[in-house]
Design a protein around this nucleic acid. Sequence first.
DNA 1: CGCATATATATGCTAGCGCATATACTAGCG
DNA 2: CGCTAGTATATGCGCTAGCATATATATGCG
Lengths: 186, 186
Amino acid sequence: MTLQHVILGMLRRGPKSGYDLNKQLETTIRFFWEADISRIYRSLRSMQEQGWVEFETVVQDDSPNKKVYSLTEQGRSELKRWLAEPGKPSGSNNPFLAQLHFSDAISIQEQLHVLTVRREEVLESLAELERRARLQDLPVPLPHDALEQGVTRDKFSLEYGVRRMRLELDWVENTIAVLRADIDVD
Amino acid sequence: MTLQHVILGMLRRGPKSGYDLNKQLETTIRFFWEADISRIYRSLRSMQEQGWVEFETVVQDDSPNKKVYSLTEQGRSELKRWLAEPGKPSGSNNPFLAQLHFSDAISIQEQLHVLTVRREEVLESLAELERRARLQDLPVPLPHDALEQGVTRDKFSLEYGVRRMRLELDWVENTIAVLRADIDVD
DNA sequence: CGCATATATATGCTAGCGCATATACTAGCG
DNA sequence: CGCTAGTATATGCGCTAGCATATATATGCG
C-alpha cells in the first residue's frame, strides 16, 4: 500500500502525469523507494477508483496525450493521516546480510569476492549521494539551525542516505579485513 | 525467492521441521529477515517439489508428528550458488524515510511525534541487539584476528545491526534537534 | 471435566510486486 | 522513406507476501 502513499506525497505540490512521477522516482525518490513503472500506472488507476486522485486528459501536439493527476480532498487527508501515523518498526529484509550470515558454507575466497563486489556498489552509491548533497551544499550532520537556513525535508533523507552508505563502506571494509587476516593465518 | 534461500541456509547444518525453522526465524534471523510462518510451510512444499529438500515424518508421543526437512544434493548446491552470487544493490524500500520526505505536509509537532516514536523503537532494537552482542562478548568493530578467535559469520550481521541502529539513533536525535530549533525560532 | 497453551502443519484470500510485452504518437536523422 | 529515441499508457503473468483461519495432538491447571 505504501507506493500509493508515496505517489500521494509526490502529488502534494501539484498535478503530475504517470510519466512525470516515474521520472521523479528514478531520480530523487529512488534512494528510499523503488517501483516499476507498470506499478505506477496501476496504482494511479486504483487510487482514482478509491477517490484519492482525479485526472484530466491533456492534449499535446508534440507528444502523445497524457493524463494529469491531482489530489482530491480525500487524497490529501489520506496523505496527512499516513504522514502522522508512526509506522511499525521496519525490520525490512536484507538479502545481502542473509547471504553473509550463511556464508560459512562457501570458501573464504568466494566470500571475499561477494564482499568486494558489494564494496564497489556501496562506493558508487556513496559517490552519487555525496554529489547530490554537495549540490545542495549540505553539511553532515545538519546544524541545529538548518531549517532556519532553508533546509527542507528531502535533505533529511539525503543525509540519512549518506550516513548509511558511509557506515556500509566502513563495515564492508572491516569485514574484508577480518577475512583477509584469517587467510594470512592459514 | 530469497526466503527459500534463507531456509536452505538454516538447513545447512542439519535437518529441521517447519516449526523449528520458525523458532529460529523469530529469534536470530529476524534481524535481517522476517517471514510469516504460513510462508515457511508453503516454501518448504515448493522446495520439496523442486527437489531442494526432502522430508521424513517423525512420530512423537509427547506432541503431534512432524516433518523433518533436510537438504538434498541439489539444495546444497543451490545454496552455494546463491551465497557466491553478488546480489544487485539492494535499494530496499524504506517506508519511514518516505514518510519523512513528504512530511512538510504536516505540522512540525506532528513530525516530532513520528520521530519520537521512531526513536523509542530504535532504542529498543538497539538494546536487544547490544544484549545479543554482549552475550557473545563481541567488540565493535571486530578485531582483525576475529576469525582466528572463533568468531563466526552471524557476528558479522550482528555487528552490522548494532552499527546501523546506533546510526539511526544518532540521526533521529539530530533530526529532532533540528526541528526543535525551528520551533524555538518561531 | 473444561480450558488454555504449546506443538505442528496447512489452506483461502487479497494485495502487491517485477518483468515482459503491447500499443501509439512525435521528432530528428540520414 | 525507414530507423531510432523519447513520450505516454496499459495488460498478462507468475511469484511473493501477510493475515486470518482450520485442524489436530498433548500437557498442565483448576
